[in-house]
Structures are given as structure tokens and as C-alpha cells.
Write a protein that binds this DNA or RNA. Structure first.
Lengths: 136, 136
DNA sequence: CGGTATCCCCAAGGATACTG
DNA sequence: CAGTATCCTTGGGGATACCG
């Protein structure tokens, strides 16, 4: 499972295999800012500065890195206008739009189930003897 | 947006805000092995060693860490039988089952769109002047 | 069997400063 | 405005060894 040829030969990818490149795709999706970036671009293209302000806490460098990776993987297009001052628009590709729905569901789920998760954490952290023993 | 009280007061979580704890939930989902673990547990509970073998390339330490975090966040339960040798089962909670569907979709999407992503990467990396210039 | 405990590495990502 | 360039810290995660 090393090449596209292998994928065709074996009839599909399997993320449970160490050598399957779908692991790399999962890593991109899991990277810190990806979910928020593609979510922000669902409605319309955005300029770099808009994204920078929309994603509270992101740095220029981190945003640039994330956008480069998304561009490389075919999720967003980068359009640079040769004006002064420069203007750069980022827009989802069809591939990006298709994944954006899934990632949006994840983001929404995190927001909707946040209270339940926080409660579970509080319960876990409050256990008598710490992260160890249990009553069998 | 610091406490559960705040969430109620403001009427919901917003992952675009730096201080919103839903960011932490997204991080868990994005961690390297989470998607594969919950995917493996959808059908049935599994023992530690089964998971270790199912997730090609994971180490004992990484698997233990990931399972602890999933347990803490209320996605899985850990059941330890006081036998010799010890036996430990991991099982999805109702909360875990609900998120497992979403994460499974992500994994499937990564596998199904892998070829297209690899092609996009090849195109990007093959650009004449490298990751820089573009024709305006 | 199902863990901990240690050591180690390196890559993600933040802070800051500079530029076309 | 939209980036690079540089430095630096943190911690995720691998390898290995030991334990109840």
C-alpha cells in the first residue's frame, strides 16, 4: 500500500494499515486550524486578513502554514491579485466543499456536546484515588 | 466563555473564540489515534491487546494515552477484570457511539478521496518554480 | 496481559521582527 | 496587506525497559 497503483491493485485504502497514505490525509484533517478554516470558507471566499481575524488566537505563521497545506492537498485555491497593497483570496475547491460538510459536523458536535464532555472530565478528575484504581 | 455558566449565559459554544473550551474537544478528535480507536470499537468492545494489533504502528504508550483521554472525556469505558492474567475491555459509551458515526465518515472520506488528494499534492509539488511564484 | 517509567527526538506552533 | 525569516518552547509520540 505504497502507491496509487497499489491502491488500485488492492481495491481500496485502509487507514488501519501503517503504510496507507490515507493516514496522512487524516492528519491534515486533524491539524489544529483546518476545521475552523474550511468552516469559515464555506459561505464565501475570504482574504488572508479576514481569516486571521476570524480565527481568534491564530498567528500569521500558523495560518499561512495551514493554508499552504490545504492548498497543496487541493482543498482551497489561492488567488493573488497584483495590486498595491496586495490582496489574496482563499476559496474552497469542489473537493474542499465536500469535506467541509463533514468537518462542520464535527465542529458543531464539539460545540453541542461540550457540556457533556466537560462534565465527564470533571467526574474523571474527581475520582477518589486519581487516575488509577477501580472497584473491579 | 470560560465556564459552563458562561456557556449558558451566552447561549452556546463558539470554536472560533480562543477561550472556548470546544477547542479542546476538537483537539481530542484530531489527535492521531482517536479516529481509528473509536472506529474499531463501533462493532464491539475490544481488549487492549486487540486494539494494539488492530492499529498498525501504534505503541503501547500512545494507545494507553489515547484511551485515557477518551475515557476522561466520556467516549469510552474501561473495564478491568481482576483475573490473572489481567483483562481490560474498552467499550464506547452512548456519547462515544454518537461521535463515532461522524469520525467514521471522516475516515471513510479520507480513504475514498485519497487518490484525488495525492494527485493534488503531486500537481502542487511539480509547479515550475516551487512553492512560490504564480502567474498573477 | 496490560500496563508504568524513562529517555529522547523532532516537528508543530507561538513570538517577534522584517519586507515586497 | 500578506506574507517570510528567525528563534525558541512545548509536548506528542516513538523506543526501550521494567512491573503487578
Amino acid at each position: 500500500m505504497e502507491t496509487i497503483g497499489d491502491l488500485r491493485k488492492f481495491g481500496g485504502a485502509d487507514a488501519y494499515l501503517r503504510s496507507c497514505p490515507s493516514r496522512g490525509v487524516l492528519d491534515v484533517i486533524g491539524s489544529k486550524w483546518t476545521v475552523l478554516i474550511v468552516g469559515a470558507l464555506i459561505d464565501r471566499p475570504m482574504r488572508f486578513g479576514e481569516l486571521l481575524r476570524r480565527l481568534d488566537g491564530v498567528t500569521q505563521k500558523s495560518l499561512t502554514q495551514a493554508l499552504r497545506q490545504l492548498e497543496r492537498d487541493g482543498f482551497v485555491t489561492r488567488t493573488q491579485y497584483p495590486t498595491i497593497p496586495p490582496r489574496v483570496d482563499y476559496e474552497l475547491t469542489p473537493l474542499g466543499h465536500r469535506v467541509a460538510g463533514l468537518l462542520g459536523s464535527i465542529r458543531d458536535w464539539a460545540q453541542e456536546n461540550l457540556v457533556e464532555v466537560l462534565a465527564a472530565r470533571a467526574r474523571y478528575d474527581a475520582r477518589p484515588t486519581g487516575p488509577d484504581v477501580r472497584p473491579a
